[in-house]
Design a protein around this nucleic acid. Structure first.
Lengths: 150, 150
DNA sequence: TTATTTTTGTTGTATTTGCAACAAAAAAAT
DNA sequence: ATTTTTTTGTTGCAAATACAACAAAAATAA
């Protein structure tokens, strides 16, 4: 059995670790860049969706986003028609550092893909998307308290 | 720019989350399965190497491994010729749950790779290994306190 | 319409994570 | 042989993470 997941875990931890170190320069603490990127990309998104996108616990997302708000990177806005939800928007400060996050991520991407051809990259991306779609089904299933049988 | 790393991050977090939930049944707390697997696979390995393999902070590995020891899954043994290092070995208890961890990981692998052909899988594995080798260079560089320029 | 279930958000608590700083052994350089 | 650097391991501390449990709005079912 090819240990695909092990490779993926190693890559993910290594890159996350690098990003966290590099973003301290912009006063972003561990993990925060993930949330800020998603909010910048989809202004008005709610935190429940952000957690789903990132694949992180709801309460972890709640606290990270609260901290982003406290530090002035984003704001929460009430919705006109739905009293329950809070829409998330980047502030000026948040929008300003977004390009730096993108730049760092692009660099990591470039480093990661060194030596791969254009075709390799297309192929890898396609395969990873398929894997991700497979995996997110199980994640939602298990997160809701269900038990996988195997 | 194809967001390869984003896909990898999503997959890794989702699967890690599932594993952590599923391994509570065996009294393994968050993250511990990673260390136990590596120690079972390479008896006598030292914790510094385990951290490198997993791509996790040295001190995090130290504490996880200490806990594995306290809970009787592994033992630390002094080396004859080197007073500094401590070699790690699974105990009977550790060896016993190893197959369950393997089984769970295999299942996750299978789910993840659903719909991919044999060739796709070979290809994906090869590409991921190359990405991982690229990324670990930067990880070690940054972890040692160096600054990437981009 | 009313009752039930799902969605969304929060807080309390325990645990994990990782940076900083230290110590000691080992290895390498002088 | 001595000094310097690297390797390996530890602890203090601050912060992130996630499970449990709760609450209220919204969506769905009855």
């Amino acid at each position: 059995m090819k240990e695909i997941l092990r490779e993926i875990g190693m890559i993910a931890r290594a890159l996350d670790s690098i990003s966290n170190i590099e973003f301290k320069e912009y006063d972003l603490t561990r993990g925060q860049y993930l949330y800020l990127v998603r909010i910048c990309e989809s202004p008005g998104i709610i935190q429940e969706k952000v957690a789903e996108l990132i694949k992180v616990d709801r309460t972890t997302a709640a606290r990270s986003i609260k901290k982003l708000e406290m530090n002035g990177f984003i704001v929460k806005k009430e919705d006109e028609h739905n009293k329950k939800i809070k829409k998330l928007y980047p502030t000026e400060k948040g929008r300003k550092i977004f390009p730096f996050i993108k730049r760092e991520n692009d660099h990591s991407n470039t480093v990661a893909l060194e030596g791969l051809s254009e075709e390799d990259i297309e192929n890898l991306f396609d395969l990873l998307q398929r894997v991700r779609r497979n995996v997110e089904k199980d994640w939602e299933f298990v997160k809701k308290g269900n038990k996988r049988s195997y």
